[in-house]
């Protein structure tokens, strides 16, 4: 009657649509500083993947877990992480840090070119334990000025270091990738995504030789997103991930990789 029209519509929507009402309540409750939509992301450049991830890419800051499917797939997981690293280094001008627990493989300088990485932009640390890796990554997050942080863990990411890393990554932060043991997944630890990587037969060029590495990537867990399962192909020249099905390549190879 004598009411404000805006008030009137709000009341109408509140009465009618519970979803709109929930949204209004969420907007009122959400703290203004930590709005998740504003956190910058590293898009993977592949619509099929990016639409599964909140914000359209890997969130910069919170840790992302990358686990091999079997112990032999460790190198595939390392390759996937370094591919993401190469993607980010192509956008930034800083260096990347790789901190490895004892027994974890460090990359071979001459092999990095095959993934499109420049060895001079990598800084390595041979840590003495998982705890040292966490400390080093935390120090790197505080120091800033690094484009990518990769940690190679012997075990997994427990809850406490995960929370510490999350806190250290407040504000502008680089992508933080953790490669863990195959069996070390399961407990909640503050990681934003968890990937499971397995090797897959590589793409062939037109002469039938090995050309581009392929990995079977499963997004097992994704906060505020959806899981998925893809066969990915890494193009080291363009720093892009592809879906092999979308290429008009060697049909027999694609068929075998699906089998």
């Amino acid at each position: 009657m004598g009411l404000d029209p805006a008030d009137d519509t709000e009341r109408a929507s509140a009465r009618g649509d519970p979803r709109a009402r929930l949204d209004a309540l969420r907007a009122r409750l959400a703290p203004p500083a930590s709005s998740r939509g504003l956190r910058p992301v590293l898009p993977l450049g592949l619509a099929a993947l990016d639409q599964h991830l909140p914000g359209g890419g890997l969130a910069l800051g919170p840790p992302h877990e990358i686990a091999p499917a079997t112990p032999v797939d460790m190198i595939a997981a390392l390759g996937f992480a370094l591919a993401l690293c190469a993607r980010q280094l192509a956008r930034a001008s800083e260096a990347a840090l790789i901190a490895a627990a004892p027994g974890q493989p460090l990359p071979y300088g001459h092999g990095l070119a095959g993934l499109g990485l420049d060895p001079t932009r990598l800084v390595l640390l041979e840590a003495g334990s998982d705890a040292e890796v966490f400390r080093a990554l935390e120090a790197a997050l505080h120091a800033g000025s690094l484009a990518v942080l990769i940690g190679l863990l012997r075990e997994g990411l427990p809850l406490k270091p995960g929370r510490r890393l999350q806190l250290a990554a407040e504000g502008p932060a680089p992508p933080l990738l953790l490669i863990l043991r195959p069996a070390a997944c399961g407990l909640p630890n503050g990681a934003a995504t968890r990937w499971r990587i397995a090797a897959a037969p590589a793409a062939r060029d037109r002469f039938g030789t090995l050309d581009r590495p392929r990995w079977r990537a499963r997004l097992e867990r994704c906060r505020n997103g959806r899981g998925g399962d893809w066969l990915l192909e890494w193009d080291h020249a363009a720093h892009r991930l592809h879906l092999p099905e979308s290429l008009a390549g060697d049909a027999s190879a694609a068929g075998r990789s699906r089998a």
């Binding site: 001008s93 800083e94 260096a95 840090l97 990359p107 300088g109 990095l112 060895p119 001079t120 990598l122 800084v123 390595l124 640390l125 041979e126 840590a127 003495g128 040292e132 400390r135 080093a136 120090a139 790197a140 505080h142 120091a143 800033g144 000025s145 690094l146």
Partner: peptide, 24 residues
């Protein structure tokens, strides 16, 4: 500059963990 950041990190790790950063 970027090197400053890595330098700060290298010093911090040398003091805190007693380990040096490596490059290939």
């Amino acid at each position: 500059t970027a090197g400053d950041g890595v330098g700060i990190l290298a010093d911090a790790l040398a003091q805190r963990l007693g380990r040096v950063l490596l490059r290939l």
